[in-house]
């Protein structure tokens, strides 16, 4: 497979915050349709890494290509990549001054110039997919955390992205709401979406991931299929992390 056929290709990428070396020589290739779960202790750089993929963070060296487009200072490239890559955040980040429906149609109308009627029809389709169409006219502040996160997923899907990034999508949720969000993510995965998920939900990783990546101190320490990753981790740091996460 040539590089431009990959969904995401990261090679020898480094990122510094001042003198702090946040990401060290990251190499990662994600094929179309692949589901990658990234885990690791807090501060290990996993969020920073996926935020580099759509330029919410700027990398200092190395090469990032998304869908064959090089991510560099070219604003046109950045815009093109952001149009094709959706992102779901830990804190949902819905626009509080707009209704759920307005949240969903805003980007398609502004960025893709989709006519309103068409954008609304598509939005309702995706809201049905995340099982929340009856809330379309409400404001985000009137929804529960789990509902808000499902709306956020629908909002991203409205741009018809080819790659979805999830940055700890269930970490800010009350325990009883986690499964409703994970269910939506599982169904998205079964539709063949390319997904890169930073998450601590090991059950989700086992069910859905093609590959699990473990990061620590800014490095990718271990990459394996979920079966191997959970039953026979090679690296000492991975074993330690897994015993802490799975231990209770």
């Amino acid at each position: 497979m040539t590089r431009s056929d990959l969904a995401v290709s990261i090679a020898a990428m480094n990122k510094y915050y001042g003198n702090f070396h946040a990401l060290k020589d990251i190499d990662l290739r994600v094929e179309p349709g692949e589901k990658v779960v990234v885990c690791g202790p807090s501060g290990s750089g996993k969020s920073t890494m996926i935020r580099c993929i759509n330029r919410l963070e700027e990398h200092n060296s190395g090469l990032i290509e998304v869908l064959g487009i090089e991510l560099n200072d070219d604003v046109g490239n950045i815009d093109e990549i952001r149009r094709e890559v959706g992102m779901v955040f830990q804190h949902f980040n819905l626009f509080p001054h707009m209704t759920v429906l307005e949240n969903c149609v805003l980007a398609p109308m502004l960025v893709r110039k989709t006519p309103r009627a068409q954008a609304e029809a598509a939005a309702m389709r995706y809201l049905e997919k995340v099982r929340i169409p009856e809330q379309a006219q409400k404001y985000p502040g009137q929804l529960s955390g789990g509902q808000q996160q499902r709306v956020a997923i629908a909002r991203s899907l409205c741009m018809e992205p080819k790659v979805m990034l999830f940055d700890e999508p269930t970490s800010a949720l009350d325990p009883e709401m986690i499964s409703e969000v994970l269910d939506v993510m599982v169904s998205l995965a079964s539709d063949g979406m390319t997904m890169i998920c930073v998450t601590h939900e090991m059950g989700f990783a086992r069910r859905v991931a093609d590959r699990v990546i473990f990061m620590d101190r800014g490095e990718i320490v271990e990459t394996a299929d979920p079966e191997t990753f959970f039953s026979a981790p090679k690296n000492e740091r991975t074993r330690q992390f897994l015993s802490q996460v799975m231990g209770h």
Partner: peptide, 29 residues
């Protein structure tokens, strides 16, 4: 919140629309 601008960026919304549709309406409130 900083996340508002980031969410708009991740949707591919350009600078002027981020300012006029997302940031300013909330800032004015």
């Amino acid at each position: 919140a900083l996340g508002q601008d980031e969410a708009a960026k991740s949707l591919g919304i350009g600078y002027w629309h981020r300012i006029s549709r997302i940031i300013l309406p909330q800032a004015m409130r």
